[in-house]
Nucleic acid binder design. Structure first.
Lengths: 166, 166
DNA sequence: CATAAAGTTCAAAATAAAATGAACTAAAAA
DNA sequence: TTTTTAGTTCATTTTATTTTGAACTTTATG
């Protein structure tokens, strides 16, 4: 495998770690992305990433659970193959936004626990309202994306090409 | 301190951990929120949370760095006091959105590294465009929030009161 | 049915992250 | 200037997370 791709796989690992997932999950996802084959077998992944079966087994479970990869099985072949799932990208965002809901909730509960109303209380109300509101707005935006994405992607593609040509 | 508040502080710790920060940072933030005093001293925080000076020192640095708390000093008093910062709540969101930029970037770079263009490539283009686009949309929404927040908060407040009365 | 390949499980080992505590620095007060 | 208080630093310890590897389960195939 090309050095560039190996570097890429490691960077993906580091990013996943930053996002609160595991490094190995990032490596597997990165590998599935840059691999030229449609899918990779368990053992192929294990060999490329030089990890143990146990580690790959646990990682695949994580990724399947997060909906980031899909398992593929073929008739007449007892192996399991994996590929990046073509999940709705907006679902990842929606999922991540739940973190904001949690944050909003804790701010709002904090406000309720205070007996004295001061400017921190004001701030807490403002902040928790913001997250409630932004959640609603985002739902609308995501609907817009789903209905107009072909057009939007085309616009971005043209912009990108212009930049390359110039 | 009331049991409820102690529970709250611990829950805040757990949430911060889930968000990728430290448990202690969450506890300190939670405490500063529910404390009835305008600000808390270093040693007061240390005592309430039963932690070492070293731990509090490092945690306060983290929180100051993340812009979540502010330090206050008073003339004729060598202590440093801390309070939750009244930062623009939308800035926290903006900051968190950088994670999505990173994610978009790695998807897009993965697409560039593939020599074969297949449906994973298509998906990568779609996904990375989505994050670019959503970032722009969010900036607009945040502007809207900043200019209309008083009105929006008032609307939410009324809704909340209605729910309580009924 | 017996064999072998493909994965899973889980206890133990390795690694990483966070907290402690003691020695240190800075700055106000006596 | 000396003392005291407030906080920082950092090596060590504690705790939590990840990985390994060997024994086990499952499923296909001769």
């Amino acid at each position: 495998m090309e050095t560039e791709k190996i570097t890429y796989i490691e960077e993906s690992g580091l990013l996943f770690e930053k996002l609160g997932l595991t490094r190995m999950a990032g490596r597997v996802f990165g590998y599935l992305i840059v691999s030229e084959e449609d899918q990779a077998s368990f053992d192929q992944i294990r060999k490329v990433l030089q990890a143990s079966k146990g580690s790959i087994s646990g990682t695949m479970k994580q990724l399947l659970n997060a909906g980031m990869v899909e398992a593929v099985s073929l008739p007449g072949d007892r192996k399991t193959y994996y590929r990046p799932s073509k999940m709705k990208i907006s679902d990842i965002l929606k999922h991540r936004m739940r973190q904001f809901d949690d944050f909003a909730r804790i701010l709002s509960r904090g406000e309720e626990l205070k007996s004295k109303k001061d400017d921190v209380s004001e701030w807490l109300i403002e902040a928790s309202t913001f997250y409630l509101w932004i959640g609603e707005q985002l739902d609308e935006i995501i609907d817009k994306w789903e209905s107009e994405k072909t057009k939007i992607i085309e616009e971005y593609r043209q912009n990108h090409e212009e930049r390359i040509e110039s």
